Computed example of a mutant assay.
Amino acid sequence: MIRITSPSRLHLTLIDMNASWGRIDGGAGISLESPHITISAEKSEAIEVIGESLLKERIEAAVRNVLPEGQGIRIIIEEDMNTHVGLGSGTQASLSAAAAVNELYDLGMSVRDLAIAVGRGGTSGIGVASFESGGFIVDGGHRFSDKGSFSPSSASRADPAPVIFRHDFPDWNIVLALPDTQGAHDAKEVDIFRKVCPIPLNEVQEVSHIILMKMMPSIIENDIESFGHAVNHIQSLGFKRHEVKLQHQAVRDVMALMQESGAYGAGMSSFGPAVYGIVDNKEDAAYVMEDVQDHLDRTIGGRVIVTKANNSGADIREV
Rank of each mutant, 00 (worst) to 15 (best):
I2P: 00
I4G: 01
P7T: 01
S8K: 01
L10P: 01
L10W: 11
H11K: 12
T13I: 14
T13R: 14
L14D: 04
M17K: 13
M17N: 10
A19T: 04
W21C: 03
D25C: 09
G26D: 14
G26T: 13
S31Y: 13
S34A: 06
E42A: 01
S44P: 01
E48W: 00
E48K: 00
L55K: 06
E60G: 00
A61K: 07
R64Y: 03
L67G: 00
L67H: 00
L67C: 02
E69M: 11
Q71D: 03
G72A: 15
I77D: 08
E78H: 09
E78N: 09
E78R: 12
D80S: 05
N82S: 07
N82P: 04
G86I: 11
S89F: 12
G90A: 12
G90F: 08
S94A: 11
S96I: 04
A98M: 05
E103K: 00
L104C: 02
Y105Q: 00
L107E: 00
M109W: 00
M109G: 00
M109R: 00
S110F: 02
D113N: 08
A115H: 02
S124E: 07
G125N: 13
I126V: 14
S130W: 14
S133H: 11
I137K: 07
G141I: 15
R143G: 05
F144I: 15
S145D: 15
D146E: 14
K147R: 07
K147A: 10
G148P: 07
S154R: 13
A155E: 13
A155P: 02
R157K: 04
R157N: 04
H167P: 06
D168H: 06
F169W: 10
F169K: 04
P170H: 08
D171E: 09
N173K: 14
V175H: 07
L176M: 13
L176C: 05
G183Y: 11
G183L: 09
A187G: 08
D191I: 10
I192E: 12
R194V: 06
I199H: 05
P200Y: 05
Q205R: 05
K214E: 14
M215G: 03
M216E: 09
P217R: 15
P217Y: 11
D223R: 12
I224T: 02
G228W: 12
V231D: 13
I234H: 02
S236A: 14
G238D: 15
G238L: 15
F239T: 06
H242M: 13
A250F: 02
D253V: 03
D253W: 05
A256F: 09
A256N: 07
M258L: 04
G265H: 13
S269G: 04
S270C: 12
S270D: 15
S270Y: 15
F271L: 10
A274G: 14
Y276V: 06
N281F: 10
D284Q: 05
D291L: 11
D294R: 15
D294V: 11
V304N: 08
V304A: 08
V304T: 04
I305T: 02
V306D: 13
D315N: 08
I316R: 01
I316T: 01
R317Y: 01
V319D: 05
V319S: 03
V319Y: 01
